[in-house]
Design a protein around this nucleic acid. Structure first.
Lengths: 164, 164
DNA sequence: GGAAGATTGTTGTTGACGACAACAATTGCC
DNA sequence: GGCAATTGTTGTCGTCAACAACAATCTTCC
């Protein structure tokens, strides 16, 4: 391995099974090393799974969380606006909101100024729920720190800042 | 073609729409900033799209590329082995290989030693095709460099090295 | 003021993907 | 020799991105 990297990490991951490393078979991923997309994809899967697991009790998935967070921070947004700023398709957002509205976390209010659009708001229940979700999300974020290291996480955020 | 996506961060991304930045509306993503998962997800989507676009002419998707690469580097692997080392489910690999075998890039050979399993090999055609794919993948990798910077890309790879 | 065009929410379809469950063929173990 | 485990396969389910079409509603322009 010419990779001067990875000395700060636990070598093997036993129990949690997130990383399927070579177990004494030593197969060469070779050409895949050096591909940013591959590393990012694997990491994204890991992070996603941990998020889902950590917020499992409250049954909130990453996309749902991002929607709630944006609405909470910007009440009255239209679906179009939320979709655009999260990079979600508006068609997809419809179902997401259907679900969140059924759970009484979000409500759609017809806009007075533009009767095509809906103004999105958290319900009172949604507000308190979101507060809880945020605590759990922070816990998840600590898992990330534990996994890749505090400084590495910060650098990651810095590097990817303008994708947010 | 080569829309040569974004050489040095055009502040706004108009056409390709990968990065939905605020267009003079200035909505607060606020709470989402600081979430590694969110940044990674957005980045992953961007990188994925660029890969698909760059390898669009040859009709190869990231997962297919990773399968071909691993088989090319380790001829004779079983499906189980490939699946495990790529973190793909063996059920899913079946369809991937069906497609790649139809395109005469890969062939399944019944193993002599274990007649349950298939030894996977690239066809001659598959070898030359993969060489071309690798050149295109390298081009894609340059797009990543252009997008986030050379050092940042290297740091990213270093940070995520043990997920590969 | 009204027709033409754009936008917003909605419904539906397609395809890639991860997660599971079940099954036949085969192998390994005792 | 029999029984559990493994391998490839098929199928289902739910998430997600990408489109396309549509009705209701603005906006623009003549």
């Amino acid at each position: 391995m010419t990779t001067t990297a990875a000395q700060t990490f636990p070598r093997k991951r036993g129990a949690n099974g997130a990383t399927p490393r070579n177990d004494a078979d030593e197969i060469g991923l070779d050409a895949l090393v050096g591909h940013a997309g591959y590393a990012v994809r694997r990491f994204q899967i890991w992070i996603f799974q941990d998020f889902v697991k950590t917020l499992g009790n409250v049954d909130i998935r990453p996309t749902q969380y991002s929607v709630l967070t944006v609405i909470g921070a910007n009440p009255g947004l239209s679906q179009m606006a939320v979709a655009k700023h999260l990079g979600i398709e508006r068609a997809r957002l419809v179902h997401l909101l259907d679900s969140l509205e059924q759970r009484r976390l979000v409500k759609r209010v017809r806009s007075k100024t533009d009767r095509r659009s809906h103004a999105l708001h958290l319900t009172a229940q949604g507000e308190t729920a979101l507060a809880k979700f945020k605590r759990l999300a922070a816990e998840h974020e600590r898992h990330v720190e534990d996994r890749i290291g505090k400084e590495n996480r910060e650098q990651l955020l810095r590097i990817l800042a303008d994708f947010t």
